[in-house]
Design a protein around this nucleic acid. Structure first.
Lengths: 197, 197
DNA sequence: TCGATATGAATGAACG
DNA sequence: CGTTCATTCATATCGA
């Protein structure tokens, strides 16, 4: 009987410490999500392969991640953004059902694939103090990123300041990251993307 | 304008829907997948139209399927295979970056389009017991196919035993499917292709 | 523990 | 043939 499995007893990591033994699916770290969101909101909603690799390299500074993960992330983000939009449009349209389907907002698939620059109005915050406290409570970050249980809106406050053909709805932004709030992520200050490059 | 679906508005029929809830897209049955996989791994990665029809006829024994479905399946399979190859190559290459870029592994597009024969080392299993339990828990199979929640490797263990110019990597096969995937498909035994003809 | 939601991953279908 | 969209599956997280 081949009783030498790789792990007879299921690894019930009851401890709240989970370094890297997860074989399931990639769970992007808060910092990684931030980066991805920033890039996405920067207008690059569909990065070419070259950029994907570059992004992956960036994300790898915070945890294992493959090109496929990045690829899927953008794919899903695009798809779901669109779906949400259509849902909302259909919702508010109701029985109107006139209006050309998504006149100028639907097919807006403009993407600037020429190297994203996050050092621009990064997150709509003043580029001054980059809190480098490197709080060990997080994972392995070393920048002004702290985990908190509130203030997600701060994170997405920039959504209306970018010149991106993204959601014109200034509301329901939070729902993108997880409905109510859940996402424990708060941005501290400054253009935290500088240290990435 | 992509508004020419056979059913634009989502079918809101819920509740008294039995038999086949009119799936929007073709969902190949496990048996069908096996057949297709076998054909593909037999070397016919790009069947001509004639063969496509023949394959479709075979698959129809297990469920509705059109020629287009078969056509798309092979197309996607090829594309995906290649993409995976590149990914792996790039992955293990890492900082090696020597070696002629995809020297002889890239352009191997050999295909034997002259009538596939699945009665060969079908799946690298001994042609003896064809489990015909016809477990009603599955869909509508009548061969040795059972659905399980483990042992995907068993299904793909043949990858190295075929004389096919497919992945030469005898390792990291699992990663091809998606790391520690969860595809619930397990092959039981025997060359189950005999009854097809 | 179970159900609902969010989201990573996979894949059929189609575009260019 | 490569890339992209749309749909679906699988799993992680949250709430009752």
């Amino acid at each position: 009987m081949e009783s030498e499995s790789q792990d007879p007893n299921t690894p019930p990591n009851l401890g709240t410490e989970r370094t890297e033994p997860v074989r399931s699916r990639w769970t992007p770290k808060p910092e990684q999500i931030l980066i991805l969101e920033s890039i996405f909101n920067s207008g690059m909603v569909n990065p070419p392969k070259d950029e994907t690799v570059r992004i992956r390299k960036l994300l790898e500074k915070f945890g294992s991640v493959g090109d496929a993960n990045v690829f899927y992330w953008f794919q899903n983000r695009r798809s779901r953004s669109r779906r949400r939009q259509r849902q909302i449009q259909a919702s508010l349209a109701g029985e109107q059902q006139a209006q050309a389907t998504a006149g100028g907002g639907g097919g807006g698939a403009i993407q600037y694939q020429s190297g994203f620059m996050l050092n621009s109005p990064c997150l709509g915050l003043s580029p001054s103090s980059c809190y480098v406290g490197s709080s060990s409570s997080s994972s392995s970050s070393s920048c002004g990123l702290v985990e908190n249980g509130s203030g997600v809106d701060d994170l997405f406050s920039f959504s209306g300041q970018m010149g991106i053909p993204e959601i014109e709805q200034n509301s329901s932004m939070v729902s993108i990251l997880g409905g109510s709030d859940a996402s424990n992520l708060q941005y501290q200050s400054g253009n935290c993307m500088a240290w990435l490059f």
